[in-house]
Design a protein around this nucleic acid. Structure first.
Lengths: 341, 341
DNA sequence: AATTTTTCTGCAACCGTTTGCCAAAAATTG
DNA sequence: CAATTTTTGGCAAACGGTTGCAGAAAAATT
């Protein structure tokens, strides 16, 4: 009975084995496989045949050594657990695979130090990196960007190419929506202070509130997790506001759960707007009104920018930045302001 | 003004640079950094100093070339989008980082061919792999396992070490729960036919149903996605059953959404049990009764088994398999069977 | 102080590819 | 058919580390 796979081979076949099997020099074998028309068709076929026979696969480490290219891209997220990143990862994964790259997923656990050290430890292992929600300081980020090709998502720092999801503009829409429902006192449920988008959202809210002549306050900061929603909900209730905009959906969903527990009616007593439209925002109870962000697209665009830069390093002069629009998706967590005395 | 980081270096420092800077031979530098007490303390410090100075980081490709070890583990999932895998990924990520390994995430898009070809293409790039929900045939899987260290999750194939989440046993509990609520006619909402756990769940349901003297039927197969829930819901409704157990929570949540749309009361008219207890199962509407699986733990255990095997290849004789128990988490999607004429 | 033992350090080969350079072979041309 | 151009294929040197071996230096022993 025949073995299923190249059994007998105790170790994987190398280029040398292929060359020997087809009676040519290693260099010829190398060219035949990677630079097909540098070699006569007959020879090439013979070599390809032998390679197939021996179940040969190039050793990418060895190739990386000479070429300096690993064809691997690191994707750094601050928390693999957060559904927001799922969509990013999906987007990058797709686009990277299409381009023949491999994705190295790294979780930085919301720590700037870990992020920095990981980038350094691994920098020889990838050709470029995508930083989704970097916790790095502007200074460090810029320094890093000057050392290696990278693209930041949701982070605008001079000198660093990025993909920006324009949630701040969306916030204005969200505020308009709330104001039109009669809300006059709106609270922003703040995310982590080290989060770059957090500030932008808050500032945008303040500006929009001024324009509409309503009050905007903030509570927090809260960790962007479902469990933090409980504290957030209590804080908002405490503030007496009739509506709130949460830093992200995860937090908003956590609030929803807590409010249900406390018997507070959403949106009857309190309206809630989330940000991002992550997995779950459509089926929570009540379904969440939120700023829909093209998250997956952001991942794809980030990859495109990065790969374009890798292919042609000269464009590094033109500081690439893409801005992706968001839009308000109205579901059932927002409604008319309650009548007060 | 001083540059922030090793500016001036156009290319990253190599071991040769470090050796030169500290006036020793390359080999000494190598030993000083990787095998500390093979070198006099004074020398070592001098070298470490130089390395720090030059911001030296070993090139892992080069190291991999001689050692044959990449210190990278591939984690293959059939769909990064599926929240079930999020938790797996979180578990593996954690455990791998703790052990100083890097995680290579690969999405096989539910395709056995892609899975197979990816494993082959990348096999020289990792030391081992974790296959979460492999779509491979037993034959292929076993062949692969004999070529390289790997651990399968939720897949029992002779010769392949694995971590098995014992959902089938849980199914019995779930059925008991439904029967005690008065249900006599139960439908299994089937997942993809190529999914290994799918069969086990169905078989377990059949057995349990026999024991309880109730009818078990099945509808499907359906894709394990939220969107497929609509068709699944309609099929179940059509069957006239009063309760169903869905292949997984994603499908169950999709059904919930569809049923709400159609004005069917859950659990009043139909009880639903999911499997896995993924992100979202607790906050959907109504919250889902489900078989809670220790998903993250499964990821961690898989890594432990894999690393143990890497450290000591001799244990490959003892075919390691871990079984993780599940338990029924009763929430609000199940209730008493409706009274029928 | 001479000798033995131990600890360091350097030389050089190797890991598996790629690639510049040159010679041999084939194809083209007059 | 000889001369010339174009292909093709081989040699050997990188790429950046690791490691067995052996000589040198330092420490310990006599």
């Amino acid at each position: 009975m025949e073995p299923l796979v190249d059994a007998g081979q105790d170790r994987p076949a190398t280029l040398a084995d292929v060359a020997a099997a087809s009676g040519v020099a290693i260099s010829t074998a190398s060219r035949a496989l990677s630079n097909p028309n540098r070699v006569r068709a007959a020879t090439r076929e013979k070599i390809e045949e032998a390679a197939r026979e021996l179940n040969y696969v190039v050793n990418s480490q060895a190739r990386a050594l000479t070429s300096g290219k690993t064809r691997t891209i690191a994707v750094m997220v601050s928390d693999v657990t957060n559904p927001f990143y799922f969509d990013i990862i999906r987007g990058t994964q797709q686009q990277l695979k299409a381009a023949g790259y491999t994705q190295l997923l790294v979780d930085t656990e919301e720590s700037d130090e870990l992020e920095d050290s990981m980038m350094h430890k691994l920098r020889r292992s990838f050709d470029g990196a995508i930083l989704a929600a970097s916790r790095l300081t502007d200074r460090n980020l810029a320094a890093l960007a000057s050392e290696m090709p990278l693209v930041a998502i949701n982070r605008q720092t001079s000198g660093v190419p990025s993909v920006f999801i324009d949630t701040p503009s969306g916030i204005e829409q969200a505020l308009g929506h709330l104001v039109s429902l009669g809300h006059r006192d709106i609270v922003y449920v703040s995310g982590p202070e080290t989060s770059w988008p957090n500030e932008g959202r808050w500032r945008s809210l303040v500006r929009a509130a001024e324009r509409h002549g309503v009050t905007a306050r903030r509570v927090g900061p809260f960790s962007p997790k479902k469990v933090a929603g409980a504290a957030a909900a209590d804080a908002v209730l405490n503030s007496g506001a009739t509506a709130c905009i949460a830093f992200n959906d995860l937090l908003a969903i956590g609030m929803l759960m807590r409010l249900r527990e406390r018997g507070v009616n959403v949106p009857g007593d309190l309206s809630i707007v989330g940000c991002d439209d992550i997995f779950g925002a459509d089926f929570c109870n009540p379904p969440l009104t939120t700023l829909t962000a093209p998250i997956e697209q952001a991942g794809r665009v980030a990859v495109s920018i990065l790969l374009a830069r890798l292919d042609d390093p000269t464009i590094s002069g033109a500081r690439q930045t893409a801005t992706l629009p968001t839009h308000l998706t109205v579901r059932s967590s927002t409604g008319p302001a309650p009548i007060r005395k």
